[in-house]
Design a binder for these strands. Sequence first.
DNA 1: GTGGTCTAGACCACG
DNA 2: GTGGTCTAGACCACA
Lengths: 130, 130, 130, 130
Amino acid sequence: MILDVDFHSGVPIYRQIVRQVQRLILSGILGEGHQMESVRDLSGRLKVNPMTISKAYSILESEGLLQRRRGIGLFVAPLAESRKASQSKALFDALLSDVAAAAVQMDVDLPQIISGLTEHYQKIHSQKEK
Amino acid sequence: MILDVDFHSGVPIYRQIVRQVQRLILSGILGEGHQMESVRDLSGRLKVNPMTISKAYSILESEGLLQRRRGIGLFVAPLAESRKASQSKALFDALLSDVAAAAVQMDVDLPQIISGLTEHYQKIHSQKEK
Amino acid sequence: MILDVDFHSGVPIYRQIVRQVQRLILSGILGEGHQMESVRDLSGRLKVNPMTISKAYSILESEGLLQRRRGIGLFVAPLAESRKASQSKALFDALLSDVAAAAVQMDVDLPQIISGLTEHYQKIHSQKEK
Amino acid sequence: MILDVDFHSGVPIYRQIVRQVQRLILSGILGEGHQMESVRDLSGRLKVNPMTISKAYSILESEGLLQRRRGIGLFVAPLAESRKASQSKALFDALLSDVAAAAVQMDVDLPQIISGLTEHYQKIHSQKEK
DNA sequence: GTGGTCTAGACCACG
DNA sequence: GTGGTCTAGACCACA
């Protein structure tokens, strides 16, 4: 599982993890029943305090995205397709709304946004292919 | 000066103000020499503590975007156009990069992003007109 | 860590702290990775409000001299030796320049300055030994 | 009368003026009975608010260094040589003490200070000659 | 009028 | 445990 953690971004680490796992689940990349990496393994791999991972997992569990099976581990919970789609859309929509607000406030017009966005998208997309 | 402050976003108020004023200055909407709203007025208008405004202004001053004229007030500092443009671009680019990364991670394709973005943009833009 | 705070000097307390910590770091007395005294401890020791300490630390952080490790504390940031030396020299040079300017304006000659300075230096130096 | 005002030093303008006039009087460069430049002239010359000059002059008057002759202007007050010398020394001593404290805190040794100081002194002294 | 500083104390976020 | 944020309000410095 690919997780990028930026220690210097100012965004709390546990929240970076929550957000990324949300995306991975809602987009179907992590499917129902997928077993999550253990707290200990993930914390070791990301060089992060185990409590931080644990907190992120707890939040995801309380959101119903993960399920704990005692003594075994954490698994991606079953999720109605409709709910998945709507949550996914809501999550992404919030981001788009932010960008739109910033653009209007900075007087950037729509073609400029689209052009810049396309550039970034293709760059990141091509990196992912590798 | 239009400033949107969301008390429940989790983002510190002073930081919301800093970010928005940065945008307004870097995009040229607030030009060199423009006198900023006084700490007292703005704090009254936004219903926040004067110190919160003061903190935001202090940060903007230490970034070189604002200049103090003692006993008179705070003003938008002169800023080389080139620097303004590059900072402005960098600020907005970071946002676009975020969206692109999220989109790739959630498997949203480019046409979808553009469509959603256009919708938000037009909505916010039309609100601004009013 | 020895910090002298003068409540009646007219110089803001947070600025006195900033200046002294700058000196301690730039002169290498506080080395890279050194953990700073906690806000609460220092505020208790100096008998000032925690926010005053926090403000000083924030400034030092924004100057890149300190680094935050969230939930753990503040630490002296790594700093290129060359940069350290040049900043250190600049800081002290400004002071010497002030004295020289005052001396010229008051018509004090060089031997007098050196004699007075030596006296003060030895007095303070010997106090430090104790 | 040569007065240097630095608008960006953070030191209050009126205090810069007070300090410099103190030095000029205590060092005898402005002798007893010398008529001070009028508030209006000085404020125009230094591009400073007249109230700022007025405040500086009031402080100097309350210190006994200046005397107001109603309807005529402000003049340098008569001053016992002994008092002049002691005040002058005290003023300069405070500066030297500051430098010494900084030097000890930054671990700069005495020969280094003297060498740096001599350099500055000669530079400023030679500029004055011109 | 302007902004700056400081206090006392509450509450939150992070690890 | 750590630092960050915010409040309410006092007082100061500056022009």
